[in-house]
Amino acid sequence: MDDKATLQRYLRTKSDDLLGKLDGLSEYDARRPLTPTGTNLLGLVKHVASVELGYFTEVFGRPSGRHLPWYDDGASPDADMWATAGETREDVIELHRFAAAHRDATIEDLPLDAPGEVPWWPEERRHVTLHQILVHMCVERAHHLGHADILRELLDGTAGQRPGDPNLSPRSPDEWAAYRARLEAAAREAAANEPSP
């Protein structure tokens, strides 16, 4: 497998993993803000799809024809980070799939050294190649997938990429509780031993 195919495979896998974080959630849980800055699962999916659409279309002169009103002048700040009551989960998932199809077409049609320009980056960094954007988007997606992992675990205890994820230690709920208690005890002991300022 060549470098382009490898990077594309990672993007596709992480795309599926991010969408999977919505599986089985109620509308409320998919949308509700879980951090002081409002981070929520459906908003992460909307944001990543929106960003990906920009990087794989506008940057390489391949317009998608899709209007994203949350980027209009006068749109409320961070409108790409949450879904309004009028935006359905299906709307956001469809946007995610639309962006993925455009991403894949761009990757397939262009060589890794294809030049692009990121108009929202500083002048000294804005001239890029497809290879740079592939790496950038792998990092961007992994960054937000990490957020989604934590949010989903906070919502209902679901951890890992999917049931039976081999990257998680196989523990029962009681074993996880004991493990967490052990970490809490270590944190408290370290805090008690901290020198006074």
Rank of each mutant, 00 (worst) to 15 (best):
D73P: 06
S172Q: 09
I107W: 05
D149I: 04
D73V: 02
T106F: 02
A101N: 10
I93G: 03
E108M: 09
P119K: 14
A177I: 11
R66V: 01
D113I: 02
R9M: 08
A79S: 15
Q132T: 14
R126N: 14
A181V: 10
W70N: 01
D3G: 05
P163D: 10
Y179T: 11
L95P: 05
L42A: 02
G160L: 14
D17Y: 14
R31A: 06
A142G: 13
V51P: 02
V128G: 11
A100F: 07
G65E: 06
H136Q: 12
D91W: 00
L168D: 09
L95M: 08
V92Q: 02
S50V: 06
R12I: 08
A85T: 10
D91V: 04
H143W: 10
D2W: 01
R97N: 12
G164A: 13
R162S: 15
G157Q: 12
L168I: 11
D17H: 15
A30K: 02
A142L: 12
L25M: 10
R12Q: 14
H47V: 03
D16E: 15
A190E: 01
P170A: 15
T88H: 09
D2Q: 05
Y10E: 07
L130R: 03
L7M: 11
I150G: 03
D23S: 12
D29R: 07
A85C: 03
W176D: 13
R89H: 09
E175W: 11
R180A: 13
Y179P: 00
A148H: 07
E124N: 13
P122N: 09
R9H: 11
W82T: 09
T106Y: 03
A148W: 06
R32S: 09
L130Y: 03
P63D: 02
A75K: 07
S172R: 12
E123R: 12
T37A: 12
P195S: 09
L42Y: 06
Y55M: 13
P77V: 04
F98M: 02
D80F: 05
H127D: 12
D23P: 03
A114G: 08
L95N: 02
T88A: 10
K14G: 05
S76G: 13
L112I: 01
L155F: 08
P197I: 08
S64F: 01
R32A: 12
P170D: 15
H47E: 03
K4F: 06
A186H: 02
L11D: 05
H127Y: 10
I93Y: 06
L112G: 00
L168K: 11
V45Q: 07
G146Y: 11
L95E: 03
H147S: 00
L112V: 05
A191H: 05
R12S: 11
Y71K: 05
A159L: 11
